[in-house]
């Protein structure tokens, strides 16, 4: 989907679903994941569909991930930190109530 326009100059390593990802210092988690080819950030609780970032400015909440020690956060607003551990947001499937 995306590639880096420039090579990484100041590498920062973190884990996503147990896999090590190398990103540029100062990247948002969303940018780091997209550059690494990740498209599935969260699972929608209603229909278990895959979701990924839509707006990149903190409005849509499609980029939710779980950051160890912080809980559920927007990947487009949080920046990468060396050694952090991130998981995709599970989205427990809840059946829809009938009106």
């Amino acid at each position: 989907m995306f590639r880096r326009g420039q090579e990484i100059a100041n590498p920062v390593r973190f884990k996503f679903n147990g896999q090590t990802i190398t990103s540029e210092d100062g990247d948002t988690i969303a940018a780091a994941l997209l550059a690494a080819g990740v498209t599935h950030f969260r699972t929608a609780p209603e229909d278990a569909s895959n979701r990924g970032p839509l707006c990149m400015i903190g409005n849509c909440f499609e980029c939710l991930v779980d950051i160890k020690g912080k809980g559920s956060r927007q990947a487009c607003r949080e920046r990468v930190v060396e050694g952090m551990s991130v998981r995709s947001h599970p989205g427990l499937v809840v059946p829809k109530a009938q009106p």
């Binding site: 326009g5 780091a32 550059a35 839509l54």
Partner: peptide
């Protein structure tokens, strides 16, 4: 996943050089 705003992609360009 893979449907995004043009402004969103532009934000990735400006902020992360993606």
């Amino acid at each position: 996943p893979g449907v995004m705003g043009i402004g969103a992609a532009q934000t990735l360009f400006k902020d992360a050089g993606l």
